[in-house]
Write a protein that binds this DNA or RNA. Sequence first.
DNA 1: CGACATGTTGAACCTCATCAACCGACGTGG
DNA 2: CCACGTCGGTTGATGAGGTTCAACATGTCG
Lengths: 223, 223
Amino acid sequence: MNEDQIQALNSIARTRLIEAGQVIMSDQEPATFFANIISGTVKLIKNTPDGRQQIVGLLFAPDFLGRAFSRNNPYFAEAATDVEICMFPNAAFERLVESNPDLQHRLFERTLDELDAARDWMLLLGRKTAEEKVASFLLLIARRQLLSGCTHDGLGQADGSFALPLTRADMADYLGLTIETVSRQITRLKLSGIVAMNSNRVMAVPDMARLAAAAGQTAAAQG
Amino acid sequence: MNEDQIQALNSIARTRLIEAGQVIMSDQEPATFFANIISGTVKLIKNTPDGRQQIVGLLFAPDFLGRAFSRNNPYFAEAATDVEICMFPNAAFERLVESNPDLQHRLFERTLDELDAARDWMLLLGRKTAEEKVASFLLLIARRQLLSGCTHDGLGQADGSFALPLTRADMADYLGLTIETVSRQITRLKLSGIVAMNSNRVMAVPDMARLAAAAGQTAAAQG
DNA sequence: CGACATGTTGAACCTCATCAACCGACGTGG
DNA sequence: CCACGTCGGTTGATGAGGTTCAACATGTCG
């Protein structure tokens, strides 16, 4: 984004801190704002009427949260970790986007990326085994945390280890598994030496290629 | 779309007929065109290195097919039925979109809809039972075929029955199941009277609410 | 310390995948 | 014309991968 755009955005922005576990947007009420994630991890959640739950997306900094043109939002957004977001009132943001084709273009590309990510995940949910699912998730986080700078949470970094932003329960909801299965598969990956865990939430990956193989991908390929 | 837009589109368009089973776009080669589906059903497919397959999207008329701004296309597009499409060379189409914010806006909204659909399907893949999956698919098709006009294929219509655009194998790949499981679940739905089948590919739904219930949705709700 | 949340491990069960046989429709060629 | 292969679909028997239920461990906070 150029200077003008950033200026314009800042002039209507308001930052906010949200604790882990808090609901940011409900699927019941229409969204009133658009936001940019500064730090932390946000879960997008869908529920069945009888209470089953599926995480349909994870958002990290600097992802966007919210619906561009205010139809109502079909999922819950919940903070997985403590989250810092930068909020824009919906109406003001939309005006800005309307008058700024470049910004709209950026939003469009971000949305296409999200669509790709969602479809990758459909392959995982529909066709991968429990071990591949868990390995895929750990690989996703490992790449994210190690490549895109530090973790911002004071854990890991130096020795190449990093923090998992989700609890076992959240992982299960993201992978279409149960808590127990996630736990067992992590144990298996530890035993086989593919990952090492300093604690329940801090992990290290000695050999990314092995993890990628366990995730059912040929070394180089996709996310 | 307004008259000018349609004019502009038509001037660069070329229609084409594609037989069921033919590949329209490969994930290997970069996409060279953008297209509009006139009739028929297109599958978007993802594969694992070892040959497992997942359908990550279905496209019907009048959906768009292709990537707006020519990054390479990460999936296969294959004709599920005979398909009629209207093709635009990528470069020309992009120029048109660039100069036409309204059209871009439309594309954006379509993409958001696809994202919602993908995430709905993630819930299905991750958390629904085989019976719910099959019922959900049949419900999706039933609503689509019965609401949005006729079926264009000469089957069904009059008596409220309609054709299934997918084989059992395709349904399995769409639902994250095996052919056998799909077949058995359809049999179960027939036995319980929730659906009736005139032949393997032609179906009728006496009571949509019952089908919706079998799909694990409360009567009114989502797709 | 006790209460509660998060995570691990074990045993039993069940859903769905796998393997296999079979059916009907269709097209081809002897 | 009918044998033959193929393709899409159905049905059955069996078994494995994951769920479920339950107990236990660990960590944190009052």
